[in-house]
Design a protein around this nucleic acid. Structure first.
Lengths: 343, 343
DNA sequence: CAGGCTACCCAAATCGATTGCTGCGCGCGA
DNA sequence: TCGCGCGCAGCAATCGATTTGGGTAGCCTG
């Protein structure tokens, strides 16, 4: 069992005091350059790495940020947020400890207390889809940022996707491709994503002199939803040439419904999703044109903001709406003249 | 700024020394029951929680386990492993810190060093799909378990899915449903999953007097793979009534290919996947019958085993093959008499 | 040559909790 | 009455690093 080597071992090997080793390694105090170099060399030779626990105790700073989320496992998007957070944390030499409340507020409170006992320096409070929350009181005074969530009663910084922008961009893209008869398929449950995208969609449709048409179904995950939705859409007076779906799962449903109804995608119907949920979007044929939510970027922003906050740097912007990006594949094409009844 | 309250505050409030508070709270030493109760009451009133950093320094035990994985974000399965690990960790009052090497061995080594500096008590070394690895030397003497991975040169415990069992169970199920002409669709890349499932498939086919037929394609994620694979399968002398796919993504490909080829699923062709990758498996119509890999269970086993190892308890089994479970939906039915040319 | 400055280095306190050992006081047996 | 044992508390050392507040030697200046 190789004994862990500590600062005293380095001091002994370099023939100086621990004080000097600390100074030499951390660039504090006055140290003779020759001595400093010798200490550094010895430290490397011995493979010395300071015990962060001891440092944390002394400096009242653990170098750990807690990542609290409601459901790490169930949604695949979460991985992107975490990855962004990881990368930013690695840049700054910060470690992340993640806890999952499983949606239970009591568990959540307990987990947060555990994080505080562990002396985390800050907390990321993340939701796995954009929603309104209230920050648990257990967090107390700890610096906190919200990811994919906002709390009207809290002053903590937050970052969410620019939902209105998503609605705008998607709609604008479809229009640019020549579509005029575009249905927005959304879900019944309201929320920031639901509302924002509708706002963006409406805005761009109207700006182009087009009539917004919105249909909604109970749940994106429901296999029947796409079917019903598409039915709703095509039973309308004018048959749409494009469907702008709330997310990729719903787009998958539309694909399947279209097949059953004998409608060709994208020949007769262009389909656009939101999420860029790769296993679906890339695997479908035709490949799904979609809008990628900025999960990675939000995760990274969260950690960077917190790292600054810990150092006492206030973020320039407190509530950020992160832009999303189009991912163009093959499910959107110019409408054929056969596509719909003319207006 | 509410000052964090420490053991000295409790001691002062209870009118005893910190020693006595420690003894009372941890059940060490001799403490008068009345005193003990008073201390406990005061501690709760003050909301005291011991500073785990200080405890860790003193006890040389941080209560943190490092979770090292190659890619947290890219595969959605990882979430299940993490969730299982989280749950087991919460049970034991352990915290998990996760790092993602992004597949880069150098980054990985650096991350592991950071974990060691942070004095983690043990390490979970997880891969996101079943493979053979070698445990990085940076881990040193730390207790370690491997998840979804084995290392022939290491004595660390490991847990992997029972691949042979998966091959067996899937095949047996199809046979039980009345199929005799079953193709196993796999990938070109070999690996424990690839090999094990073939072994199980072959074994059960032969045991039932049936001829194993195996086709393989370059990649499950490749949209064309399913198409090619299905072509391969049906261009065979006898048309199969069932396809046992390496995973759900491949099954999705088969669904789409079948549609293009005018083959009804499940009427003319039963399809079975592996993974129970919900966004695909549950969303497809017909719902995909598949085999769920024991990710959650593996994550939980890993933490439990490590927690024991830290306490000096050797695990009863060192290399565990975790059984998987069938998830029956609608993509497997009894073959119709029309299904294939008779043998 | 004394006083003052620098440049270097170090002893010791500190962070908060745990624990080995010591001390005190009371009761009981000799 | 003395002494021993026991029940109960607490002092002080400890974990490993950082940091404060000097201390010492060498050099410069008046």
């Amino acid at each position: 069992m190789a004994k862990r080597i500590g600062i005293v071992d380095v001091a002994a090997a370099a023939g100086v005091s621990v004080t000097t080793v600390s100074h030499a390694l951390n660039g504090r105090g006055q140290v003779n350059p020759a001595t400093r170099e010798r200490v550094q060399r010895v430290a490397i030779e011995l493979g010395y790495a300071p015990n962060r626990i001891a440092t944390a105790l002394r400096n009242r700073r653990s170098g750990i940020i807690g990542f609290v989320s409601d459901e790490i496992a169930t949604t695949p998007y979460s991985g992107r947020v975490i990855l962004g957070a990881q990368d930013a944390a690695a840049e700054r030499g910060i470690l992340l400890v993640m806890v999952d409340s499983n949606g239970d507020p009591e568990v959540e409170a307990r987990q947060i207390l555990a994080l505080r006992a562990q002396q985390v320096d800050a907390i990321v409070y993340a939701r796995m889809y954009h929603q309104t929350v209230s920050v648990p009181s257990a967090i107390g005074e700890l610096p906190t940022v919200l990811v994919d969530a906002v709390d009207r009663h809290s002053t903590s910084p937050s970052v969410v996707p620019d939902e209105v922008g998503i609605g705008r961009d998607g709609t604008a893209y479809l229009i640019a491709m020549g579509h005029r008869n575009i249905v927005h398929l959304t879900i019944d449950d309201r929320g920031p994503g639901h509302d924002g995208r509708i706002v963006g969609y409406r805005e761009v449709m109207r700006a182009n002199g087009l009539e917004p048409r919105i249909a909604s179904v109970p749940s994106p995950a429901d296999g029947r939803a796409g079917f019903d939705a598409l039915r709703l859409a095509i039973s309308d007076t004018e048959r749409p040439t494009a469907v702008f779906c709330f997310n990729d799962e719903m787009a998958l449903g539309v694909y399947q419904s279209a097949r059953e109804l004998g409608i060709a995608v994208p020949g007769e119907l262009s389909v656009m999703g939101v999420d860029d949920f790769t296993p679906i979007a890339a695997q479908l044929r035709p490949g799904l044109t979609t809008i990628a939510l900025p999960h990675y970027e939000m995760g990274r922003w969260a950690i960077r903001t917190l790292a600054d906050l810990i150092d006492g740097v206030e973020p320039p912007e407190s509530h950020v709406r992160m832009p999303a990006g189009m991912v163009v594949r093959d499910s959107v094409v110019a409408p054929s003249s056969l596509g719909g009844i003319h207006a």
